[in-house]
Simulated scan of single mutants.
Amino acid sequence: MAVTEFDRDGGNGIEFEPYAAFASAEDTTDWLRSWTGNPALDGGAYRVFGQDGTGGLAALWRVRSGRPLVEQPVVFMGSEGACGVVAGDLSDFLWVLADGIGPMEAVEYDDPSGRPDPVLTSLAERHATTPRRPAREIARGARAEFPAYVRDIEDLCR
C-alpha cells in the first residue's frame, strides 16, 4: 500500500495517517476487543489501514463476501466511541479524502466540509474507479447502504 503525505495545514487539513501496511490480525482483534469491551470478538472482518490524530481507526470492513478488499466499505471507529461507514468502497474513500474530509469528519458530521486537496485529488483521479461526487453524498450513500452498522457495533459493546 503506497503512503501519501497528508497536508494537515496547521490543524486545518485532513487529520489522517495511512499506514504503510495493514495492521496485523492480532493487533486488529486486540483493538476491537478493547474498543468494544467484548473479549469474545474476532477482528477478522476488518483490515485496519490508518488512524486519525485522536487514535480513531479507519478500516476496510469485509462484509461483501467474495469481493476484493477495494470493493469493501470503509468504516471508522473513533477513540471516543463514534463509529460509522465512511464510504462504500476504497475508490469512494479516495474522493472523500480529495474533498479534504477525513474519516472521522465523514462519520461525525452530517454535512462535513473540508478544503479540497490537490495532491489527493490527483491521486483519486489516477486511481478511483467511481465517479467523483461530494464527500457528503458519498458518506450519506454509504450510511444508507449499511444502515444497521452503528447499531450492530453498539450491540457488540459490553
Rank of each mutant, 00 (worst) to 15 (best):
Gly13Pro: 06
Ile14Phe: 03
Ile14Ala: 02
Glu15Cys: 08
Phe16Ser: 12
Phe16His: 10
Phe16Thr: 10
Phe16Pro: 06
Glu17Ile: 07
Pro18Leu: 09
Tyr19Gly: 09
Ala21Ser: 14
Ala21Gly: 05
Ala21Pro: 01
Ser24Trp: 02
Ser24Cys: 08
Ser24Glu: 14
Ser24Tyr: 05
Ala25Met: 09
Ala25Asp: 15
Glu26Gly: 00
Asp27Pro: 00
Leu32Arg: 06
Arg33Ser: 02
Arg33Cys: 07
Ser34Asn: 07
Ser34Gly: 07
Trp35Phe: 14
Asn38Phe: 07
Pro39Leu: 03
Pro39Phe: 08
Asp42Lys: 10
Asp42Trp: 13
Asp42Leu: 14
Gly43Met: 07
Gly43Phe: 06
Gly44Val: 04
Gly44Cys: 09
Gly44Ser: 15
Ala45Ile: 00
Ala45His: 10
Ala45Phe: 09
Val48Tyr: 11
Val48Asp: 12
Phe49Met: 11
Gly50Asn: 10
Gly50Ile: 10
Gly50Leu: 07
Asp52Trp: 14
Asp52Thr: 13
Gly53Glu: 15
Gly53Pro: 05
Thr54Glu: 15
Thr54Asp: 14
Gly55Leu: 12
Gly56Phe: 03
Gly56Pro: 10
Gly56Asp: 05
Gly56Lys: 09
Ala58Asp: 00
Ala58Gln: 05
Ala59Thr: 13
Trp61Glu: 00
Trp61Gly: 05
Val63Ser: 11
Arg64Gln: 06
Arg64His: 12
Ser65Ala: 15
Arg67Tyr: 04
Pro68Trp: 09
Leu69His: 09
Leu69Gly: 03
Val70Met: 08
Glu71Asp: 15
Pro73Asp: 00
Val74Met: 08
Val74Arg: 04
Phe76Ile: 06
Phe76Cys: 03
Met77Asp: 04
Gly78Asn: 08
Gly78Phe: 06
Gly78Thr: 12
Gly78Ala: 11
Ser79Phe: 14
Gly81Ile: 10
Ala82Met: 08
Cys83Lys: 00
Gly84Trp: 01
Val85Gln: 07
Val86Gln: 05
Val86Cys: 04
Val86Asn: 02
Gly88Asp: 03
Asp89Gln: 11
Asp89Leu: 05
Asp89Ile: 07
Asp89Ser: 14
Ser91Gly: 14
Ser91Ile: 08
Ser91Phe: 05
Ser91Pro: 01
Asp92Met: 03
Phe93Lys: 02
Trp95Asn: 01
Trp95Arg: 06
Ile101Trp: 01
Gly102Glu: 01
Met104Lys: 15
Met104His: 13
Met104Gly: 02
Glu105Trp: 11
Ala106Met: 03
Ala106Asn: 01
Val107Met: 08
Val107Pro: 04
Val107Leu: 10
Glu108Met: 13
Glu108His: 12
Asp110Trp: 07
Asp110Ala: 15
Asp111Leu: 11
Asp111Ile: 12
Asp111Val: 15
Asp111Phe: 07
Pro112Trp: 02
Pro112Cys: 08
Arg115Leu: 09
Pro116Gln: 11
Pro116Glu: 14
Asp117Glu: 13
Asp117Tyr: 01
Leu120Ile: 05
Ser122Asp: 09
Leu123Asn: 04
Leu123Met: 13
Ala124Ser: 08
Ala124Gly: 07
Glu125Ala: 15
His127Ile: 03
Thr129His: 08
Thr129Ser: 12
Thr130Ala: 13
Arg132Gln: 08
Arg132Glu: 01
Arg133Leu: 11
Arg133Cys: 07
Pro134Lys: 02
Pro134Ser: 05
Pro134Ala: 06
Ala135Glu: 02
Glu137Arg: 00
Glu137Phe: 00
Ile138Gly: 00
Ile138Cys: 01
Ala139Val: 12
Arg140Gly: 05
Gly141His: 09
Gly141Ser: 07
